[in-house]
Design a protein around this nucleic acid. Structure first.
Length: 775
DNA sequence: CGCTATTCATTTTTT
DNA sequence: ATGAATAGCG
């Protein structure tokens, strides 16, 4: 196999580079993924490099999985064992810490390699509990703001002590205390947050020479993708891993740096040549993705930025259609424009994938609504992931509690779920007991019970809870991950709680738990331990849920990084929304917004639509406010932009006037395709996960256990076609007679919106509702 | 204690 | 419009 076939001279040069530092400045769509995969193959085949001594770092798990597969495919037939290591920074660090992190207990009290990972939810819960203890509320500072201050500090190697010293006013002093308590809270629970994963990996490699040397021997070649979005910790990790002769290749594009707000330092890429004066620099400036019009339009926008190396992307692709701009009267009609135009494209070319990009997640609602009216199936990437659902997090919190009873956040989460009579007063007593004895909440429960310091009722419920957890803990070693979960769901009464719940979505939640159990079983089959499984659940990214085959995807511009679509819409081109109002204060932030605009525009291969609304309401019922069109629109050369509103060209489709008639019929229509949160969708999500990152394990894969009943996959019963469609009269055991108004979803998991006489509207899952049709 | 009804404030982007 | 925090009732 010739790994150089079909490459241009610059790409070829990059692929053939072997020793020493390499900086690849790769413009959008210039084939960098291709270059990375080919270079890995070239090293392995052409230079007899041992596969696992190559580490490639990507931005998402999904990208990692795809890259690994492509390499293995290109190498053809070679076993997966000899393939390169490909992962995200975060999963690499988790692996490193779990394998070799034991010595960190010398630096961090209570650290063991069984540490837990606190995700955003857990961090929030921790901060809330600290607020409560310190008698603070959100008027002091919003939880999220406090967390982002803490994260920023950690990314810049600042400690609570630095904060105390620098505190000029009482507010800063309190923030320092908050930060201090937050760090102590993590330490007490032996938990690491996302920032810590990187930070402590760096500390480990600094502190433990043996481990560092081990990894330096093991890793001969390092490649880092999206280098423009690395932060300080990631940079230091690179320095520690890339020992002389510095076989490190970084790939990036300063024009696509969009994560400055979370600590990414654009100087990492700008200064690479200073860090490694011997570095070879290769520019990939030919774009193979987009039409010339799109490239020129996007290039003109980003050219307004001052902080850049100045690279000019060119393409030999066809000129293509103009970039279209549509200004709708309001947000709803903007969404309807998008939906109707998508429909038009899908009629012309059903295979063309479409993406709708927006700045903020909340914008998806209106667009979803419009797509449903047009009966266009779609996929929302991001917003909420499967693993963030309350019931899934509850179940996982039990698991974590079993692994580590001192994990206060997990304990608080499940202490009274399902309700077992442990109320506010009891919890407060326990909290103050824990605080004054300087022990974890779990120890406080133990001592309070043993010393009989509680009322009879509280003592009974706490005692029962304590016994339950201890029993489950004893069983833990003998159970496979999926069995642990089923035991928890049974013995804590969690499943029962949902089964006796009559609200419509309790069925969905039960279904989600089934999926969770079967995901654990799949993980077990792949040889993963319970801890591996927890890691996976903590490290899945929104973007990992992306499905290439989805005809229409809705996602933020940030999540669109690295992706491409034939047809792209960018919604909400308004000042305050994009560029976002919070970014208007400084020139740097504005430039980052502009880069985001560049990223978004260059996702498009053939057609690019920009849209805005003349008025938009901030919240649900607030009055519509007038909008000013985004400055970025005016930065697109007018010759490349076609304004659909003002001059519907004779001969070209008049999108605006047709919209009104389609809209009328769309109003009556209901959505019947897949919804983003349907069971089908979650299955797809897991199917996609299979291909992604599989953590390295120390032990051999456990033998596949006899399938336990609880681990059996939910069987898909044949869809019932019993005339359950809009307009049908039905009978429900509890609510009596009703009429079906709408049907959402299809087959097994269809949801019905039914108007019951005397009960109003109810949303029920068809397969569980036990409806009888009335003739 | 647990549930429901109400008020209230809330929208950047995320590994 | 939606969700989270709180008050007030059973």
């Amino acid at each position: 196999m010739d790994f150089l076939a079909g490459l241009n001279p610059q790409q070829r040069e990059a692929v053939q580079h072997v020793e020493g530092p390499l900086l690849i400045l790769a413009g959008a769509g210039s084939g960098k993924t291709r270059v990375i995969t080919r270079r890995i193959c070239h090293l392995i085949r052409g230079h007899d490099v041992y596969g696992p001594s190559v580490l490639a770092v990507t931005f998402t798990n999904k990208a990692a999985g795809e890259m690994r597969e492509r390499v293995l495919h290109l190498l053809g037939g070679q076993t997966a064992d000899a393939g390169p290591a490909v992962s995200t920074f975060h999963s690499f660090c988790v692996r490193l810490l779990r394998r070799d992190g034991a010595s960190l207990h010398e630096l961090r009290r209570g650290f063991t390699t069984q540490f837990q990972i606190y995700d955003a939810d857990d961090q929030l819960a921790l901060v809330k509990s600290i607020y409560k203890r310190l008698g603070l509320d959100e008027k002091f500072m919003q939880y999220r703001a406090a967390l982002s201050r803490i994260s920023h500090a950690k990314n810049h190697q600042q400690t609570p002590q630095d904060f105390y010293k620098a505190a000029a006013d009482p507010k800063m002093a309190r923030l320092a205390k908050l930060f201090d308590d937050y760090e102590n809270g993590l330490q007490a629970a032996n938990a690491l947050d996302f920032d810590d994963l990187l930070l402590w990996a760096v500390r480990l490699l600094r502190h433990d020479a043996e481990t560092r040397e081990l990894w330096n021997r093991r890793l001969q070649f390092l490649m880092i993708d999206e280098y423009q979005d690395t932060n300080r910790s990631q940079y230091e990790l690179m320095r520690l891993l890339a020992s002389p002769p510095h076989n490190v290749a970084v790939v990036g594009d300063e024009d696509q740096s969009i994560y400055g707000w979370r600590g990414a330092d654009i100087n990492n890429i700008l200064d690479f040549e200073k860090d490694f004066p011997e570095a070879r620099v290769i520019r990939l400036e030919q774009n193979y993705r987009s039409t010339r019009t799109i490239i020129e339009a996007a290039g003109a926008v980003v050219a307004r930025n001052k902080a850049r190396k100045g690279k000019w992307l060119f393409t030999e692709n066809e000129e293509g259609s103009p970039v279209c701009f549509f200004e709708a009267p309001d947000g709803e009609q903007e969404a309807m424009f998008i939906a109707s135009t998508i429909e038009k494209h899908r009629r012309q070319d059903p295979a063309a994938r479409v993406a709708v990009l927006y700045r903020t997640n909340f914008q998806s609602r209106q667009i979803e609504e419009a797509l449903r009216r047009y009966q266009i199936g779609y996929l929302v990437v991001g917003g909420f992931s499967f693993y963030q659902r309350a019931e899934v997090k509850d179940a996982l919190a039990y698991v974590r509690l079993l692994l580590n009873p001192d994990d206060g956040v997990s304990l608080m989460r499940v202490l009274n779920v399902p309700a077992r009579g442990i109320g506010k007063t009891t919890v407060e007593q326990l909290e103050s007991r824990a605080a004054s004895n300087r022990v974890s909440l779990w120890r406080a429960i133990e001592s309070a019970c043993d010393e009989r310091k509680l009322g009879a009722r509280a003592e009974a419920s706490l005692g029962a809870f304590r016994r339950l957890i201890n029993e489950l803990r004893e069983d833990l070693p003998s159970l496979a991950p999926q069995e642990v979960l089923s035991e928890i769901l049974e013995r804590t009464g969690y499943r029962k709680m949902l089964e006796s719940d009559t609200t419509p979505d309790s069925e969905t939640r039960l279904g989600n738990l089934e999926e969770l159990v079967s995901a654990a079983a799949d993980a077990h089959d792949r040889g993963e331990s319970l801890v591996d499984f927890l890691d996976t659940t903590a490290l899945v990214a929104d973007a990992d849920a992306l499905d290439e085959t989805a005809p229409v995807s809705l996602l933020t511009m940030h999540n669109a990084k690295g992706l491409e679509f034939p047809v792209v819409f960018i919604a909400g081109m308004e000042e305050g929304l994009f560029p976002h109002s919070r970014s208007r204060e400084s020139e740097e932030q504005l430039e980052e917004e502009r880069r985001l605009c560049y990223v978004a525009m260059t996702r498009a291969q053939k057609r690019l639509y920009l849209s805005a609304a003349r008025v938009r309401r901030r919240y649900g019922g607030s009055p519509p406010e007038p909008c000013i069109r985004s400055r970025f629109l005016d930065e697109v050369p007018s010759g490349l932009l076609e304004d659909l509103h003002e001059k519907p060209r004779p001969g070209s489709l008049d999108l605006y006037s047709e919209r009104a008639s389609v809209r009328e019929s769309a109003r009556r229509n209901t959505y019947t395709g897949a919804t983003y949160n349907s069971v089908d969708h979650i299955k797809q999500f897991f199917a996609a996960r299979q291909a992604a990152d599989v953590p390295v394990r120390k032990t051999a894969p456990a033998p596949k256990p006899a399938p336990s009943p609880a681990a059996a996959k939910p069987k898909s019963a044949p869809a019932r076609r019993t005339g359950l469609s809009a307009g049908a009269a039905v009978y429900h055991a509890k609510y009596g007679r009703g009429t079906i108004l709408r049907k959402e979803g299809d087959g097994d998991d269809a949801k019905l919106v039914i108007s019951f006489h005397g009960f109003g509207l109810k949303k029920l899952v068809a397969k569980f509702a036990q409806l009888k049709t009335e003739s």
